[in-house]
């Protein structure tokens, strides 16, 4: 008996840690268990819709019209990659998939290049009107793209850019810039002034400082921006809906025609939607840290 009491006393920290009875400790454990269960349920809620889409994309048309995707648990043999094979073989859909790349890649590269150049000037070169310009960019962050659809459509029409990939890219660049500049300027401005001045003292020109000091130091921010912008453009529908024609349409727009008969086109739509999701999902899972940072940094778009 004495021994046990002795042991118990040793276990209690001297510094007056919260003295909790066995009951409350059990309650806390249970409460934590309940929280875990609740959150697990929430997570399942979030996953089920995507999982359903995935399964639907792996079942053929007749299976999808006859029974729900959840019957796959009893009949796993129904799964097939035929939908994907068919979709990839479909020239128009495959072309639209490639178009999505042709749009997203240049729109991302251009935005990153232009925004990092502009952000450098806005954070480290002093010129009259710098404050005003920065504030204007911050203001443009939330500009609805609807404001520009009609005028730019006219403008593109005049320059022969309407219905071209170049036009879609340019529009994305324009509306990607405010956020990109906002994100990069914030990061650039956070670089210690000493570092920039050290480079200046070491004999570097503005261009050299930008290229050899600021860009390498800002790699994380640039990675965030790149991923964010790429996914933003990849996932766009509205811009392409207005500015792309049949040959330059990305996958979202190409699949849109199938929406009319949703019930009978589930196999096609689910497959197409999942095909369009593969790239973002992969990018997200690999670079999720940068993507999340990008979204948090923006928090306005």
């Amino acid at each position: 008996m004495t021994l046990v009491a002795e042991e118990v006393r040793i276990e209690v920290p001297v510094s007056g840690a919260p003295k909790r009875g066995v009951l409350s400790r059990v309650a806390a454990r249970l409460g934590n268990g309940a929280i875990q269960l609740l959150l697990a349920l929430v997570a399942v809620f979030w996953l089920v819709p995507v999982f359903g889409l995935l399964i639907a994309s792996l079942r053929d048309e007749s299976a999808n019209t006859a029974t729900g995707w959840w019957t796959v648990f009893t009949k796993p043999a129904e799964l097939t990659l035929a939908n994907y094979a068919e979709l990839v073989a479909n020239q128009a859909v495959w072309q639209s998939f490639l178009n999505t790349f042709y749009i997203a890649v240049p729109a991302t590269v251009l935005v990153v290049v232009m925004a990092s150049l502009a952000s450098y000037a806005l954070s480290w070169i002093e010129f009259p009107g710098r404050e005003t310009l920065t504030v204007v960019v911050v203001g443009l962050l939330v500009m609805p793209i609807q404001v520009a659809l009609i005028p730019v459509a006219k403008l593109f029409g005049a320059f022969g850019l309407f219905g071209t990939i170049t036009g879609v890219v340019l529009f994305h660049v324009a509306f990607g810039l405010p956020f990109a500049i906002f994100l990069l300027r914030n990061f650039f401005a956070g670089i210690p002034r000493d570092l920039i001045e050290a480079a200046r003292m070491d004999g570097a020109t503005e261009w050299v400082i930008f290229k050899r000091v600021v860009l390498p130091v800002a790699k994380p921010a640039i990675a965030s921006l790149t991923i964010f912008q790429f996914l933003w453009v990849w996932n766009d529908m509205l811009v392409a809906l207005v500015f792309a024609d049949q040959d330059s349409a990305p996958i979202t727009v190409a699949l849109r025609a199938q929406l009319r008969q949703f019930g009978t086109n589930i196999d096609l739509l689910a497959t197409g939607a999942f095909l369009s999701m593969i790239v973002p999902l992969a990018v997200f899972l690999v670079f999720q840290k940068y993507f999340v940072q990008g979204v948090l940094a923006g928090s306005t778009k």
């Binding site: 997570a43 089920v48 019209t65 996932n235 699949l255 689910a270 999902l281 999720q288």
Partner: peptide
């Protein structure tokens, strides 16, 4: 929970169109 942010609104739309599809042998 963050994952839906990565995919397009178009795909999310399809996902929920399927979720809420009226016939009980299609919509979950």
């Amino acid at each position: 929970l963050f994952m839906p942010m990565a995919i397009s609104l178009f795909a999310s739309g399809i996902i929920f169109r399927l979720v809420y599809e009226e016939t009980p042998n299609q919509g979950v």
